[in-house]
Amino acid sequence: MTPHLTHEQLCDHLLNSTPQAAHESGRLELLREHLRDCSICAADFASLNESLTVFRSTATAWSTREWNRAKANAVSQRLAPARPRSFMPAALWTAAAALVVSATLPFALHRTPPATPKTPVAVVHTATPTNQSDEALLEEVNETLSSSIPSPMEPLDDPTAGRPNQSNNQRKN
């Protein structure tokens, strides 16, 4: 036997399997004797054995917790009052379907005709008033921007304008 136990020998002792034959039984007895005499191997064995025991404890505690939690969930679901499940989803689906139909119907009905040589002419005719109104709008914006006093502040330009009653009241007081 080597001065210290090999990994397999340590594992054999740790697994503590039932000896299948007489020579195995004798071998395990020799390992036990070595562990009694060798403090290094004994400490190594004890440390690993303890870790594995704690590992088993954590696995057991965790599974017990999860098991109980699942049981509690099952009980709470069973005790929960029955909700009217049939109406709400049907109403929601109906509303969603109506929304989709109302949104897509205009697009479905308003199909632009295929491009023909006459189309540009039509576009020019219909676009003319739009262009005119756009130009008018831009002109108005330009005027507003170029004016010295912005239109929202025009009343402040003449403080007395539009306030005759107020000034009369002040005089009375």
Binding site: H7, E8, C11, L14, L15, S17, S47, L48, S51, L52
Partner: peptide
Amino acid sequence: VKSHLYRALAAIRTRHNATR
């Protein structure tokens, strides 16, 4: 089965000793 356990325990021992 034994050799699987030896290898698994070897991995655990290595990691265990390193952390210690």
